[in-house]
């Protein structure tokens, strides 16, 4: 006996009720449960749909789908980090490395020659702080808007568009910037220090460019690669 379309929809609802928000994972679990129910029916055709479903759900353990969802998040987080690293590496190869060198020396010269280098550093920090606040606000807005529509949710899409600004890593970065500002007088006396700080700032700028510009602009490709069903659903 095969499941009806209605019963499949019921399974989708069941996964949502058990805290599986993401469509790709829902689809996989729905197919799994459907297979399990169909094969159970071959042996015990008298059992009802709900009885078999509950029996199969129990096999996932006391925490249900929670563990599967968490591990999926971890796996995709890792994939995202790998994407960042891949882009980052290209800045250490010709031709992009030229940009890295030129920018580092430009920032170095500004710090070295300008009497306002201290203010320059502070301005960067303030502007960046504002930028992150804006991104955070924007991501909240997207999340809220999405909640009100019935649009399907994709975990990787959420990681790309929303989680960046709320990442705790940014607090660490501000901490480093504050330290540099506090001890600027000491650091700016030494050329090696100025050079290192310039290099770090440029690297940091590149990282942000990758996070907020390059990866989001290629999001469609990455999503289609990760989720073959993404294409089917968005035709």
């Amino acid at each position: 006996m095969k499941l009806t379309t209605q019963q499949i929809d019921q399974l989708y609802l069941f996964t949502r009720q058990h805290y599986v928000e993401y469509y790709d994972l829902q689809t996989e679990l729905v197919d799994h449960l459907a297979n399990a129910i169909e094969s159970e029916w071959q042996q015990n055709p008298k059992l009802t749909f709900d009885e078999v479903l509950n029996e199969e759900f129990k096999k996932f353990g006391v925490f249900g789908f929670v563990d599967v969802v968490q591990k999926r998040q971890a796996a995709l987080g890792k994939k995202y980090n790998r994407l960042i690293f891949q882009h980052f590496k290209t800045f250490f190869k010709v031709p992009k490395i030229l940009f890295l060198i030129v920018m580092t020396f430009t920032v170095f010269l500004i710090f070295k020659t300008s009497i306002y280098s201290d203010y320059f550093l502070r301005a960067i920090t303030v502007i960046y702080f504002g930028f992150i606040c804006y991104k955070f606000y924007e991501s909240k807005k997207i999340k809220k808007a999405q909640k009100n529509t019935n649009k399907k949710k994709w975990l990787l899409e959420e990681i790309i568009n929303q989680n960046v600004a709320s990442s705790p890593a940014f607090i660490g970065i501000f901490h480093i910037l504050m330290q540099i500002i506090l001890y600027a007088e000491k650091y700016f006396l030494n050329d090696y220090w100025i050079f290192s700080i310039s290099f770090l700032i440029v690297l940091f700028g590149i990282l942000n460019y990758i996070l907020f510009k390059i990866i989001p602009s290629k999001a469609q490709t990455y999503l289609e690669q990760t989720y073959p069903e993404y294409k089917l659903e968005n035709l």
């Binding site: 996932f60 599967v68 999926r72 796996a75 890792k78």
Partner: peptide
């Protein structure tokens, strides 16, 4: 178990 299989598959996929 289902709870072990899917995480393993997703991890291998991410790798």
């Amino acid at each position: 178990t289902e709870g072990a299989l899917y995480p393993a598959l997703h991890k291998l996929e991410a790798e």
